[in-house]
Simulated scan of single mutants.
Amino acid sequence: MAPITSRRTFLALAAVGAASAACGRATATGGSGGGETKKIRYQGWAGQVTLPELAEDLGYFGEVKLEWVGNTISGPQDIQSAATGQTDFGGAFNGAVVKLIAAGAPVKAVISYYGVDEATFSGYYVLADSPVRSARDLQGKKIGMNTLGAHSEAMLDIYLQRNGLSPAEIGKVEPIVIPPVNGEQTLRQKQIEVAVLGGVLRDKALAAGGIRPLFSDFDLLGRFSAGTFVLTNRFLKQNPNTSRIFVTGVARAIEWSRTTPREEVIARSTAIIQRRGRNEDTSTLKYWRSTGVAETAGRINDEEFKLWIDWLVSHGDIRAGQVRPGDLYTNEFNTYGG
């Protein structure tokens, strides 16, 4: 993800929320003007196969087709694009979704698409001989992560709070932005004391040796869904059947990934990338382990948003009572198993 500070992220999301609320755009053509749209515009991720792309390839969307408009640089950017009508859906960390809706954007979370479990998690790693052994040892230390004001910083705050650090003591811990591909190198060169590593970057670093985990998001919270796809309220109203096909198709893809042998999931994803011809590297796909989505079919519950609402309130990013979990999402369009 591109470096984004907490304040800059919040202000950008606030601006998007105000703009989208004022102009009321952010939808594909459809609804009362002549039937529902059968085309859904979206942004992808280089070298990755998203769940909607997998769902389409598996035939779960029927006549509904995805239209790729380019690749995104971050979750917050992806949902901003959906809110302003550049795309029809976007996905991000749930805290970013809370910020966007709190800022006035007329969007709704409709399905979880990534999360944390035993196989898919982010760890906070130190050098094997580091003196850092506890939360209190992090005071005065630099923690490298991909972006501020999002998942990694929230996990760090929760870890520090649970270990009894006061707000003043937490203020002495310094999270800084380090591009994920540079995290391991920056840690080994001792420019930072802790690196947040996940996925292939974590596995490669561990294979090289010389580092050890301090904690992980799975250690803190166990299995949980961490991010959701959003659609605008207008798109949902004008295109209820298309929305249902999309959300339920993604739900089916989640369960297909959960129940299909890992090697087959990787082979399918590799074939999808090779066919679309975007000159992408597929080597990292072999490290795929799971979506991390906790609930069956990606259904959303209040707790998945309450955690981040509380965190954002504690940081002063939103006011207490400004948003309620139940106002942020709907499972209405997820008919998996129904």
Rank of each mutant, 00 (worst) to 15 (best):
T186G: 01
A251Y: 08
F93S: 03
V116F: 04
K99D: 12
E264L: 05
I170F: 06
V293T: 08
P325F: 11
G95S: 13
R133W: 03
V194H: 01
Y329V: 03
I176C: 08
F10L: 13
I73S: 11
D317H: 10
D129N: 14
W288F: 15
S314N: 13
K306C: 02
R133A: 14
R223F: 00
R324Y: 02
G298E: 05
S166C: 12
A12V: 07
I254G: 03
V126M: 00
A128T: 05
I266F: 08
G210M: 10
L201D: 15
Q238M: 11
S225R: 00
L220A: 09
R223T: 12
I111M: 02
Y113V: 14
G35M: 09
E303Q: 14
G59E: 09
K142Q: 11
S314I: 03
G210E: 07
R262A: 08
R268V: 09
G144A: 11
V116D: 03
K39E: 15
G24R: 13
G17F: 04
V98P: 05
I111Y: 00
D217W: 00
P167G: 09
I211H: 04
E63V: 07
R188P: 08
L100S: 02
G35Q: 06
Y42P: 04
R25Q: 14
P179H: 03
G144C: 07
L138D: 03
P167F: 13
T50D: 02
D317G: 02
A83S: 15
T330K: 07
S122T: 14
R212E: 04
R25K: 15
R162E: 15
E56M: 10
L160R: 02
I158G: 00
A271F: 01
F89G: 03
D117R: 04
E304H: 10
G95I: 01
V69C: 10
Q238I: 03
E174F: 07
A55P: 01
R212H: 02
V132G: 02
A119D: 13
S74E: 01
G209K: 13
E184H: 08
G222H: 08
A92Y: 05
I176T: 11
D129W: 06
T296C: 01
G95W: 04
A267L: 05
F61W: 07
F224A: 02
L236P: 00
S81N: 14
K306Y: 05
D217C: 07
I101E: 05
N241R: 10
Y159G: 12
N239D: 03
F305C: 01
A150L: 09
I309H: 05
D129P: 08
A15R: 13
D281R: 10
R212V: 12
M1K: 01
L127K: 11
A19M: 09
G62D: 07
N279Q: 12
F333P: 04
F121L: 09
Y113W: 10
W308M: 10
W288S: 03
R319Q: 15
A83E: 02
P167E: 05
M155A: 13
A15N: 11
A267M: 02
T37G: 00
I266T: 05
K172D: 15
N182F: 07
S81R: 12
S290C: 06
A96V: 02
Q86I: 12
Q77C: 10
M155Q: 13
R276V: 09
P325V: 08
A154I: 08
